[in-house]
């Protein structure tokens, strides 16, 4: 397993796109978070400030999706899947190593983006005269750690989808569609029943409920439950991916 991890790690970092996409993830997360926070005034009344400050991850995740989809999709696109499986014929180990590597860089990018968002957000809030939340209180820590994990699960969901579809373009469209189109469509669904369900079980909405620090009883799912829903999506995608990757012709 060590060799697979090393090989996948080398593969990821020898592509120029990796560093660019990871910096884009961090930058988008911090930038959008700061922009939204900048619009907040003390007169707006009590707000869920950690959620506001960390909201940029909704946009930063897009480049993470691209990175994770390319990690598998490009192997099929450029046919390097052949040398990969010739060099490492144990397919589950390959998939596991790939997931571990992508998960690690997603968590790293998520940590950088989250910490930077919190610091920048605090500074922006302070300049607007809003009392910033303490960085170390329980709910804020949960929101921060949850955001990092959220990004990790999104990366795994993308990786699994790309393995199933064997095509980076299709996978990017599918994952971004599931993440983004569902909330857009939810606005216009006429059935309240379905609206609630979609809001409860749509991967992005559910996963991001981990960012909530206030008014938790009003949420359809508790923060950790919400993240667990997203984790279930990621696990489902990974499972189907593993079954197909093992049995299919390369």
């Amino acid at each position: 397993m060590r060799r697979e991890l090393r090989a996948e790690w080398t593969k990821l970092w020898t592509l120029p796109s990796t560093a660019r996409l990871l910096s884009a993830t961090c930058a988008l997360t911090v930038l959008v978070g700061a922009l939204v926070t900048a619009g907040t005034r003390a007169s707006d009344g009590p707000q869920d400030l950690p959620k506001l400050v960390l909201g940029g991850v909704q946009y930063g995740q897009a480049t993470m999706v691209v990175l994770a989809c390319l990690a598998v999709g490009a192997e099929y696109g450029t046919r390097t899947i052949v040398p990969t499986l010739v060099a490492m014929p144990w397919r589950l180990r390959v998939l596991l190593a790939k997931s571990a590597v992508v998960w690690c860089v997603a968590l790293a990018a998520g940590t950088v983006g989250t910490v930077a968002s919190l610091l920048v957000g605090r500074a922006v809030l302070a300049s607007n005269g809003v009392a910033a939340p303490a960085l170390t209180d329980g709910p804020t820590l949960r929101a921060a750690a949850g955001t990092v994990l959220y990004l990790g699960f999104v990366a795994l969901l993308s990786l699994g989808t790309a393995t199933v579809l064997r095509d980076s373009g299709g996978a990017i469209i599918t994952v971004l569609g599931v993440l983004y189109a569902v909330p857009i469509l939810t606005r216009l669904v006429s059935s309240d029943h379905w609206k609630r369900r979609l809001e409860k079980y749509a991967p992005m909405k559910a996963g991001l409920s981990v960012q909530a620090t206030k008014n938790l009883s009003a949420l359809p799912l508790s923060p950790w439950q919400g993240l667990a829903v997203l984790a279930a999506y990621a696990a489902g995608a990974a499972l189907i991916a593993a079954l197909l990757f093992r049995s299919r012709d390369a």
């Binding site: 697979e4 090393r6 090989a7 790690w9 490009a74 450029t78 899947i81 060099a87």
Partner: peptide, 25 residues
């Protein structure tokens, strides 16, 4: 084995292509 000479990621340097294979082995 060499099955498909075109099976190299165009964004990767030739040496890096060999390097990940070396790590795998």
């Amino acid at each position: 084995a060499m099955l498909d000479a075109a099976a190299v990621h165009p964004g990767r340097r030739g040496r890096d292509h060999l390097r990940w294979i070396a790590h795998a082995a």
